[in-house]
Write a protein that binds this DNA or RNA. Structure first.
Lengths: 223, 223
DNA sequence: TGACTTTAGTCGCGAAAAGTGACTAATTCG
DNA sequence: CGAATTAGTCACTTTTCGCGACTAAAGTCA
């Protein structure tokens, strides 16, 4: 058994939990009792013998009761910026959570990305890194699919990509890229959503490619 | 002043210093006195008040007498894998050093990537992450140029890219991509390198682009 | 009912970029 | 000198991109 210093932890694990709330991205923040009036990212200090990832999953469990559907480490953040835990560095993670199944425990609240409360400089840097990482992984990991229900329309999928990228995409090009990447397959169900022609439902079903070619790339709209 | 625990440091800063040695990439390893017979990445524990980057630069200074020409954080590595410093986690960095000016201090040795001595699992993971990061940043940061002298031939530049990517590139496409990216400008000097037509010397001189468009992308050769 | 609106889904073309072999140019070697 | 060698460019084909315009199937409202 290894002792931890009593006053301050060597490092904390901070997690940016991201979800799609309606038309916006949102992240989970908490206001602990000891941290007078400032919101902060969920965090914990590691337990002995626990891997970094395991601690990050535990943070998510404590906040939402379930693990993220996708997670990635953002790196270590120090920079002499003050952190609520008073730890010297934070090892930060991003995690994605589908909004349907994500009901925050007491003390945790979803905040839309557009309207975040003041955070510590370090945590603000972490949130920005999280967004950059999500956008960078979007064409390599099935991030958008994981934020949607098992079946979805292509319009819903496109809207999710637009939300994550913060950009409008061109419909025809989006579908062409999707087909080239062999990521979805149609079901035989259709959904009528009020006005307009009913949309076919698709599911995420990546085909094995012999060559891992290049990632999915969409055409941007420059409005 | 904050006290550090005496027995183990909370974390160490490990640096993968990469250079181009002739036709191969090489990284710097050290065999400290206390670390019986095993080579390891250069590392230090942080001093109070020092940023992570500053510590990483200090590691490079101690090993080579000069700071890396480019550096990036790789993240935190824990995974319960044993580290020579006995620290719980390592915050790892990659740094690039041009080989001409990089003479290792006593106890440090360049090892070609193809022929590394046994490393701890954690450090092996760090080295692999370093290579992935270099390849991923190659089209965003002027990595290849920084490993070359101030003026260079386009063949030398292409060889450097091939070395870093581990792939052959097609000459005509390479030059086309280079021109599209406005990264180099010709000098009026030529260099005769034994047999064959003399090559014109170029220098790194990135033009400001109004739109940061996309990164440089080269055409691969599939042999 | 029938014109109009709204959303889904597709087509196809012009432009741009990528992939590649073959060509010309300037040097050294024998 | 001619062959070999390396640098640099050209030209052609294929693929991908950007995007407007089209058809399809529903609801809305006079």
């Amino acid at each position: 058994m290894r002792e931890r210093p009593l006053r301050t932890s060597p490092y904390s694990i901070d997690v940016v939990l991201v979800t799609a709330m309606g038309n916006e991205l949102a992240i989970l923040l908490t206001r602990g009792s000891a941290e007078r009036e400032r919101w902060s990212l969920p965090w914990r200090t590691p337990q002995t013998g626990e891997t970094l990832e395991a601690t990050a999953v535990r943070v998510a469990q404590d906040a939402l009761g379930e693990p993220p559907i996708w997670m990635e480490q953002l790196g270590a953040f120090g920079d002499a910026k003050r952190h609520p835990s008073d730890s010297e560095i934070s090892v930060a993670f991003v995690g994605l959570v589908p909004h349907e199944t994500a009901s925050p425990h007491a003390g945790y609240t979803w905040f839309p990305m557009r309207d975040l409360p003041p955070l510590s400089p370090r945590q603000r840097a972490i949130v920005e890194a999280a967004m950059r990482t999500i956008q960078g992984r979007l064409d390599q990991a099935p991030i958008a699919f994981r934020l949607l229900p098992l079946t979805f329309t292509l319009s819903e999928l496109q809207q999710m990509y637009e939300l994550l990228l913060g950009k409008r995409l061109h419909k025809a090009s989006f579908r062409r890229a999707l087909q080239a990447a062999w990521l979805v397959e149609p079901t035989d169900e259709w959904r009528s959503e009020g006005r307009g022609r009913p949309a076919q439902l698709f599911r995420y079903a990546p085909k094995k490619r012999r060559k891992p070619h290049r990632g999915v790339r969409f055409d941007f709209l420059y409005p």
